[in-house]
């Protein structure tokens, strides 16, 4: 009987150890999603120029969907501005498609200090694009990280903390 108890306890310890090891390994270097970008996604900037997402091939691309009516988005943007400056020479490019009308977006670009490309589109178009990129609920902020060869590495619905975002970018940027 004592032997049976020993095996039960040993088995449970092994289970917990296995789960813990998996979690630890995941934190140290979880595999990326590595899903190709859907084709033909296009945005229009505030001057009316159209861009496909493959325009930024060769860069680590962070696409951050935002809006002027989205308070968590406005909280997050100053951190994006800071990291764009910090990591520009290591190949980071941030773009900010806004689910908003162009006039509202223009009025916020300067106060927020946004110096990376900002795009706009009708809510229906933008929601359709976000859905193709994996944002089922259609909420904001929503970000995807795209590898230099055009594969989606990460998705995030909701605001990044500054530490989370910097850590994520460091994980994929060249040293």
């Amino acid at each position: 009987m004592r032997r049976v108890h020993f095996f039960i306890v040993a088995g449970l310890v092994a289970a917990l150890a296995g789960y813990g090891a998996y979690r630890y390994a995941g934190q140290r270097g979880a595999p990326a999603i590595e899903q190709p970008l859907p084709a033909d996604l296009q945005f229009t900037d505030l001057d009316g120029h159209a861009y496909r997402l493959d325009h930024w091939r060769g860069k680590l691309l962070l696409v951050n969907f935002w809006a002027t009516w989205c308070t968590p988005c406005l909280h997050e943007i100053p951190q994006l501005v800071k990291l764009q400056k910090k990591f520009a020479d290591r190949g980071l490019q941030i773009i900010g498609p806004a689910v908003d009308d162009p006039d509202s977006v223009r009025s916020m670009v300067r106060p927020l200090g946004i110096d990376y490309p900002v795009m706009t589109g009708t809510p229906d178009d933008m929601i359709g694009i976000m859905e193709k990129l994996g944002n089922g609920p259609g909420g904001l902020p929503f970000s995807i990280l795209v590898s230099p060869d055009g594969k989606i590495l990460e998705r995030r619905l909701g605001e990044f903390t500054p530490a989370e975002l910097e850590s994520l970018l460091r994980k994929y940027l060249p040293q």
Binding site: F7, I8, A10, G11, L12, A14, A15, L16, A17, G18, Y19, A21, Y22, R23, G26, A30, I33, G134, N135, G136, P137, F142, E154, R155, R156, L157, G158
Partner: peptide
Amino acid sequence: AALLAAALPWAGAAEDFWHRGAQDAV
């Protein structure tokens, strides 16, 4: 217990797969 030990890491992997594939949880 041994089966549990073998299954738990895979349960974690499955959980991660779904969270990373379709982003609808915060």
